[in-house]
Amino acid sequence: MRKIGGFRFFNQTGDQVYERAPYSHTVAWLQLTATKASGMEYTCVYWVQDSGQQIHSNRSLPLSIKVQDAPMAPVLSLDPQQPVYRYGNNVKLLCNAPLPSFYIREFQYYADFGLAISIPVWKVENYSYNLKITGGEVSGSYSCAYFVFQSGRVVRSESSLWVNVYVKSQPISWIREIVIGGSFFTINGLIFFFSHHLKKKR
């Protein structure tokens, strides 16, 4: 009994793009990354070994792969727009999509330090995320994207341009300086008082 020896895959120009061999199973697959360059027709063949020779099957019917561009990038803005934010402030990250709201299923917000927040939505063209300025850890660059239902599946848009949220370090208040300074002089005064008192006893 003849056994399958392997599979070969070809693009529409006839060039071999992948070979799976040796391979004895009856099913093989070609994994593609969806890019404009990969959008074309593909065919495949298999072969069997017979007396040390490869006997190829006829080529399969062509399968067409269509690759569409990702939906256009949204625009991310800040409200209020300020060069510097301080502890205790709130700033809204507003992601504005260029598509009709009916198609949008979700917004996502990203930060360059690893933050990722998903917000399911329905029939809105923009959605804001309220960022609380709790400390320097939220200082960084932010971006957003949206997801639409397209061709029977959920598709992510291109990412927006990055916007910067700069958080200024919390300064020491003048009251705190007075308290700390007053404590310093009080402690030193007590040390001087007890030292002077001990000397008088001697």
Rank of each mutant, 00 (worst) to 15 (best):
P71Y: 04
P71D: 03
P71K: 01
A73H: 08
P74R: 01
P74S: 03
V75S: 11
V75R: 12
V75M: 07
V75H: 11
S77E: 05
S77Q: 06
S77M: 07
D79Q: 09
P80G: 12
P80D: 09
P80H: 12
Q82L: 15
Q82S: 15
P83H: 14
P83I: 14
V84Y: 13
V84K: 15
V84P: 01
Y85L: 09
Y85P: 01
Y85V: 06
Y87N: 04
Y87I: 09
G88E: 06
G88T: 11
N89R: 12
N89D: 10
N90G: 02
N90I: 04
N90C: 03
N90L: 10
V91M: 04
V91E: 00
V91W: 01
L93Y: 07
L93R: 10
L94F: 01
L94T: 05
L94N: 06
C95R: 00
C95I: 01
N96M: 07
N96P: 00
N96H: 10
A97N: 08
P98G: 07
L99T: 03
L99C: 01
L99Q: 14
L99G: 00
L99K: 07
P100D: 14
S101L: 05
S101Q: 10
S101G: 04
S101I: 03
F102C: 08
F102G: 09
F102D: 11
Y103E: 14
R105P: 01
R105C: 06
R105T: 05
R105E: 04
E106S: 07
E106I: 00
F107Q: 00
F107W: 04
F107R: 00
F107C: 03
Q108A: 07
Q108L: 07
Y109R: 01
Y110P: 01
Y110S: 11
Y110C: 04
A111W: 06
A111I: 06
A111R: 14
D112L: 08
F113D: 15
F113T: 09
F113Y: 14
L115V: 13
L115D: 09
L115C: 06
L115N: 11
A116F: 09
I117P: 00
I117E: 13
S118G: 03
S118H: 07
S118Q: 13
S118M: 03
I119C: 05
I119A: 04
P120K: 04
P120S: 10
V121Y: 01
W122I: 02
W122V: 03
W122N: 11
K123H: 15
K123R: 08
K123C: 10
V124F: 02
E125N: 14
